[in-house]
Amino acid sequence: MINLFAFLVEKLSLLCNLKVFFEATSVQGHERPTQRGHPLRRGDLLEVPRILFTHFGIYLGDNKVAHLIPDILPALTDDRRLLCSVVTNKRLIVGCVYKCATVRVDTLEDFAFGSRILVNPMDAGAGTKALPGEEVARRAEELVGSVPYSLLWNNCEHFATHCRYGRAASRQTEQFCECLKSLIRDQRSVLVTGTLGIISMVFCGIAPSTTLPTILIPFTLWMAG
């Protein structure tokens, strides 16, 4: 049991380290856009750190930013006044669950939501030359409106990189998938899931809802590893 606890702590630490990695690689070596005479330019890729992820957008000029954000409201109403209001956490979470999103234009302040804004931090490591600023902004403007959403395959970072570099990609998705691979490959995952399944059977009783996951999940992890 001590080994199982140590294993869970190790994996939790790995997830925390990924978050620190995202924030550290984003912040290092970049200034606020308004400092030291570096004004924002139309077509700039902007990123702001959030609690669990980094949010991306494309600067359109005139203090406006186009960004893809999960939002359930466009699926429920056509009221422009409601749709133009700032997306709340509840709207965002429900939008994620139902895979509804919109590419919308907000003010720089609403996009930043009090966080530090980083400008074009991907350019150095993208491996692809950024498109001209006017083309980047035009591509973003053409996508404004409702779009399907996927946390892993069509998120705000995919939108921003598609506009900026002509190729949709997401470092956050890649890092998350690598973390999942490491969990699957670690045979201790089989022992952990099997133990949790047995515990659920002890407390909830032997039934298809407890027995099948107890058998199938560890077996799948074992075969995948």
Results as ranks from 00 to 15, higher is better:
A6Q: 14
A6Y: 10
F7H: 01
E10M: 13
F22K: 03
A24I: 01
V27F: 01
H30A: 01
R32A: 15
H38S: 07
R42V: 14
E47W: 00
E47Y: 03
L52R: 10
I58K: 01
N63K: 09
P70A: 00
D71Q: 05
L83K: 07
T88A: 10
L92Q: 13
I93M: 13
V94A: 06
G95P: 01
C96F: 07
T107P: 03
L108G: 05
E109A: 13
D110T: 07
L118S: 06
L131C: 01
P132C: 06
P132A: 06
E134K: 13
E134I: 08
V136D: 10
V144P: 10
P148A: 05
S150Q: 03
L152V: 14
N155S: 05
E157I: 05
E157F: 05
F159K: 10
F159E: 09
A160E: 05
T161F: 04
T161Y: 06
H162D: 10
C163H: 07
A169D: 11
Q175S: 15
K181L: 14
S182L: 09
L183M: 11
D186H: 11
V190I: 09
T195R: 07
G197V: 08
I198R: 04
I199G: 05
T211N: 00
L216R: 02
I217W: 09
L221C: 05
